[in-house]
């Protein structure tokens, strides 16, 4: 029974990582850059939820406001910080992304102070089935994540824009020759990734109500790790990597001897997997034929 609870906990943590990892992996696949400010968009989403809860008090409205704001934020970050650097060296883009990350954290600190805020999204209670006690927030996180991942997969596979995203990620030049506006596709990708970050912020606050300007830092790094484990650039890879990280984390936390080293163990998983599969679990090994 306890194991099932642990597993469900792992799946819910993992699906949150997966939702964040999707943002990293899609942006990497399409813009070929690591958006290290992605984790901080989660934090901004968290503060939007906080503001909405204190003013309106409705968590669903809070989530919607956070999604909307993060989408606009993501688009603006791309326009202002990254777009002028298209064609610049990857190092310049990387340092800019780190700069944006600090900018977001510092701005949040100036506006909201450095003391963590308590953000109780709602008290959802527990579901009890026989001896099994499952907090509802876990089921909500899991359910929402599954729907999001399914919708995203269908979107990419079956819509005109989704297919254009695949084309751009594979060959920007050839995509342009099809008449695809690559800049527009990059903007859409940032919008989707940032919207997902807002969902992740909501899931995280449901699980633990403490909100500070570094809310997104650690989950951001772990989700990035998840994206690399799954194979950066691969959408199913981000999902698999995220879930794997979450389950490892949940299991490790229940074993007293290794619980304090949980973070280290998660990164160890990365190292081990990369030793055997350098491009990640579902990473692309390019086949080429002449």
């Amino acid at each position: 029974m306890e194991f099932i609870e642990t597993l469900l906990n792992g799946l819910s943590i993992g699906s949150t990582y997966a939702i964040i990892a999707l943002g990293y992996t899609m942006v990497y696949g399409i813009a070929k850059m690591l958006n290290f400010a992605h984790g901080d968009v989660i934090m901004v989403g968290g503060y939007m939820i906080f503001l909405s809860l204190t003013s309106v008090g409705n968590p669903i409205l809070g989530l919607l406001a956070a999604v909307l704001f993060c989408v606009l934020l993501g688009i603006s970050i791309e326009k202002v910080a990254y777009k002028p650097l298209r064609g610049a060296s990857p190092l310049a883009v990387l340092i800019t992304a780190i700069g944006v990350s600090y900018l977001l954290q510092s701005t949040a600190q100036i506006i909201f102070g450095s003391a963590p805020k308590m953000v109780v999204v709602a008290d959802f209670g527990n579901l009890t089935v026989g001896e099994l006690t499952i907090p509802y927030y876990m089921l909500i996180t899991l359910g929402c994540s599954v729907v999001i991942m399914l919708a995203l997969s269908l979107f990419v596979k079956y819509t005109r824009t989704g297919r254009a995203m695949i084309a751009v990620s594979e060959d920007k030049g050839a995509a342009q020759l099809m008449g695809i506006n690559v800049n527009a596709i990059i903007t859409i990708t940032f919008a989707i990734g940032s919207g997902l970050a807002a969902f992740a912020g909501f899931f995280m606050l449901m699980k633990s109500p403490s909100l500070s300007n570094t809310l997104g830092a650690m989950p951001g790094i772990k989700a990035f790790t998840a994206a690399v484990i799954g194979g950066i650039g691969s959408i199913p890879g981000a999902m698999v990597g995220g879930i794997l990280m979450g389950v490892v984390e949940a299991i490790s936390l229940t074993i007293p001897a290794i619980a304090p080293y949980t973070d280290a163990i998660e990164f160890l998983v990365l190292i081990v997997i990369l030793l055997f599969r350098p491009s990640g679990i579902l990473g692309k090994v390019r086949r080429e034929k002449v």
Partner: peptide
């Protein structure tokens, strides 16, 4: 920009074909 030129009725088979390797023929 290239994508607009394509909409005007110019099309190119690039050097090295550059078909989308992961998509099907139909896609």
């Amino acid at each position: 920009p290239c994508h607009k030129i394509v909409h005007l009725g110019m099309s190119q088979v690039p050097e090295g074909r550059r078909v989308f390797q992961e998509l099907t023929v139909y896609e």
